[in-house]
């Protein structure tokens, strides 16, 4: 029935998720556009989701995939609120550069 029977070791998924997560961290540290920083946070969440799904398949437990579903819903809520905050910031200061948005620093 299943033509996609794969026997990929879990280490490959661990390394792939680690690389994707580190690319997300790199983007958060490097870019100054707040929208791209939000996108890099999405990338990190997806790396974790992929690893959760892989472990769920490995342990033959549906809990991991249900947790992926919950993480997707929380990410959707986070993106909606974050982007509306960004729109509000853009209306006030006409920029989404995070070097300008440092008034809460001191």
């Amino acid at each position: 029935m299943n033509t996609l029977a794969n026997n990929i070791p879990i280490n490959y998924y661990l390394i792939l998720s680690g690389i994707l997560f580190c690319i997300g961290v790199m983007g958060v540290l490097m870019r100054r556009n707040a929208i791209i920083i939000l996108m890099c946070i999405e990338l990190m969440l997806n790396a974790v989701n992929l690893l959760l799904a892989a472990f769920s398949v490995m342990h033959n437990d549906a809990g991991g995939q249900v947790m992926v579903f919950f993480i997707m819903a929380v990410a959707a809520a986070e993106v909606a609120v974050g982007l509306s905050i960004l729109v509000l910031i853009y209306r006030n200061v006409k920029s989404v550069d995070i070097n300008i948005l440092n008034r809460l620093k001191w």
């Binding site: 299943n2 029977a5 879990i10 390394i15």
Partner: peptide, 28 residues
């Protein structure tokens, strides 16, 4: 970011157990 990636991949490579994902199960 490269240092973090190096640490994570080296730690995950030295994991001694290497179980096989058998995706013929119908959990998904």
């Amino acid at each position: 970011g490269g240092c973090l990636m190096l640490i994570m991949t080296s730690v995950m490579k030295t994991a001694d157990t290497m179980p096989i994902i058998d995706s013929t199960n119908q959990i998904g």
